[in-house]
Design a protein around this nucleic acid. Structure first.
Lengths: 184, 184
DNA sequence: CCAATAAAGAACCAAATAGTTCAATATTTC
DNA sequence: GAAATATTGAACTATTTGGTTCTTTATTGG
């Protein structure tokens, strides 16, 4: 039956993702990707059409894995979920910082249209999830309006991860923000 | 006395800035900069050390021109200034979108250390200005804490400018956010 | 062993990259 | 016109880029 593959698409994505995550699209070379994945250039080209294709695949993979964390679907729905989302949403493990998706927004000008679609779809989903959680708390202001604010604040937190600032200060800031929300 | 220069450092910065603003550092080539400024490569190299040097100079120039707008120093200080800052801070004229400074945060990994310093210094200044305006309104929560929140929200607004979304929805969002702030 | 499949690696390509140097040319003041 | 300065354009490195193709070498099932 022929020689079996010794790398899976998943493995490649898992290893390529952090590179794009940290360096973005323009500043990531094929050599970087070879090094990171341990897969030869020819191997990458048999699995993916080109660099753009691989990038979008990584982005999709990232968003799926984020969705699986279920930060906004844990029962009971409410402010607590929103707070957890803000605190633990933007990862900070080692090299990659902030949110891969938010980071990518800066590069839309040079990214394939597909990337734009993937990101906006996910943002729409996030906003629905946020609104559902907020609705459970019966605030006076419209839940979707509050959800919009939360998403912008979240986006801000994500890019601020590129700054070297303590986690404690970020946590305190989020808690203050939540105080404001709960009064709505 | 010799031939006088027919381009000033200022003019070059004014024309090079939008290019970096839109495309970032990695995706801007010297050719792009030649085209945009109308100044020959050799000319650019007599005025600036290298691409990094020119980038940082553009960033400085941007922040100075932003400061001159005085959005946060108009009397009387207060919520109104904060609202104006959020609404009119991130520019949207033509190609360049959002805030050049916030955009740059995504690229710190490949930018000279100087860029990091310039950005963080300016953020510290912004936060002081915000806090002063907030203090004038005598809120219950600490003004500096509120200022932190505003700055994060602002950063979020900036990168969201990379999305094609109506200005009206952004205005409404800001107004809702201000409602929340005023209750603090 | 044989057929089938996969991977590795090398050898390419054309284009673009940042960066440097230098001679030619232009424009000013005196 | 002469001296001083500015600007341009060309020539030139050396490296990297994304992308392609082909041969060689593994590794499997039957």
């Amino acid at each position: 039956m022929g020689r079996p593959k010794n790398f899976s698409r998943e493995e490649v994505l898992e290893k390529a993702m952090p590179v794009f995550w940290k360096h973005g699209f323009a500043d990531t070379s094929l050599q970087d990707l070879e090094r990171a994945t341990g897969v030869n250039k020819s191997g990458l080209y048999t699995e993916f059409r080109d660099k753009e294709d691989l990038f979008v695949a990584c982005l999709r993979h990232y968003l799926e894995s984020q969705g699986k964390r279920g930060l906004l679907t844990t029962e009971p729905l409410g402010w607590k979920n929103v707070e957890t989302f803000l605190k633990n949403g933007p990862l900070n493990k080692g090299e990659q910082q902030g949110c891969f998706s938010v980071n990518s927004m800066r590069e839309f000008a040079i990214l394939p249209d597909e990337a734009y679609g993937v990101v906006t779809e996910n943002r729409a989903l996030l906003q629905r999830l946020l609104a559902t959680n907020i609705e459970a708390e019966r605030p006076r202001m419209a839940p979707s309006a509050i959800a919009e604010i939360v998403l912008s604040f979240f986006s801000g937190l994500c890019i601020e991860r590129n700054l070297k600032s303590g986690k404690t200060s970020s946590t305190r800031k989020i808690e203050n923000f939540m105080t404001a929300l709960r009064s709505l």
